[in-house]
């Protein structure tokens, strides 16, 4: 199966919302999402947990109020983010994460129905990544960082092709779309799939996603990776995360 990508490089800015504890704005593959993180703050009685913090995720689409699809995305994000946040440090508290979708790529071949807009499944990696960046910006203790990506299996000329960061056109004609997230310890954190696919196809998708998300960060000594032509599948997410945080920490600690 050949692998191809249509995405441009990701871009991120941290601390964009001055009144929130932490915030991030992230753009990649046509999606732009802004996230705010507040916490640990006081939880409502009904959400209080005696030994852990409650993680509340709210997803707001750009147009429309959001319906069942958004709630589904919220519950997936909540269960995966709760795995990496050290919730045991803050019992009876609330970590509130709000994700606002600002831009999503348009499919120029159809007229979109927007009043009851339901979010495309392939926005999930952008939502997840923005949430992780916002958590890092807020200084909420987390077990490890994480990166996520989407892979679609698209039929082309009789064979199947894996597309990393599929465009809306790709998603429309794809047979299946998968979203995977990995922690910085190379563990699989999130795996959601839609469509018809075989186990072998999922295994290939897993390998592709792992390659995109878990590329080892080059150490100072080894410069071999510069000429490595095999790794051209999509952007190096971990490296991007690290360099974004490096800039943030350097500007925070400029005085040292």
């Amino acid at each position: 199966m050949t692998v191809s990508t249509t995405s441009t490089a990701p871009a991120a800015a941290l601390g964009v919302l001055p009144r929130a504890d932490g915030s991030a704005k992230y753009s990649h593959a046509g999606y732009t999402v802004t996230a705010s993180v507040n916490g640990p703050i006081e939880a409502q009685r009904r959400d209080e947990h005696p030994y852990e913090a409650h993680v509340d995720v709210i997803v707001r689409p750009a147009a429309g109020v959001g319906g069942t699809r958004e709630r589904h995305l919220e519950s997936i994000l909540q269960s995966s983010l709760s795995q990496i946040i050290l919730v045991k440090n803050f019992p009876r508290s609330l970590i509130q994460i709000v994700l606002q979708v600002e831009d999503s790529p348009e499919n120029d071949y159809v007229n979109t129905k927007l009043v009851q807009a339901s979010l495309n499944f392939s926005i999930m990696p952008a939502l997840f990544q923005t949430a992780v960046l916002a958590l890092l910006s807020a200084g909420v203790p987390i077990r490890a960082t994480a990166t996520a990506t989407a892979v679609a299996i698209v039929p082309q000329d009789g064979t199947k092709r894996s597309v990393v960061d599929p465009s809306p056109r790709d998603v429309e004609i794809a047979q299946s779309v998968h979203v995977l997230a990995f922690t910085s310890h190379d563990e699989l954190l999130l795996a959601e799939s839609e469509g018809d696919f075989t186990v072998k196809e999922w295994d290939d998708v897993y390998e592709t996603a792992k390659d995109v998300c878990c590329r080892p960060v080059p150490t100072k000594e080894g410069m071999e990776m510069v000429l490595d032509d095999e790794h051209t599948n999509g952007p190096d997410l971990r490296h991007f995360l690290r360099s974004t945080m490096e800039n943030k920490v350097a500007s925070d600690l400029h005085w040292k």
Partner: peptide
């Protein structure tokens, strides 16, 4: 480490911590 920041070690006092900024 559990946050993103600079790792500081103080050998005299035998302590280490992460220097980072936050608002909470």
């Amino acid at each position: 480490p559990v946050v993103a920041g600079q790792l500081i070690t103080n050998h005299q006092k035998n302590s280490m911590w992460v220097e980072y900024n936050s608002n909470r």
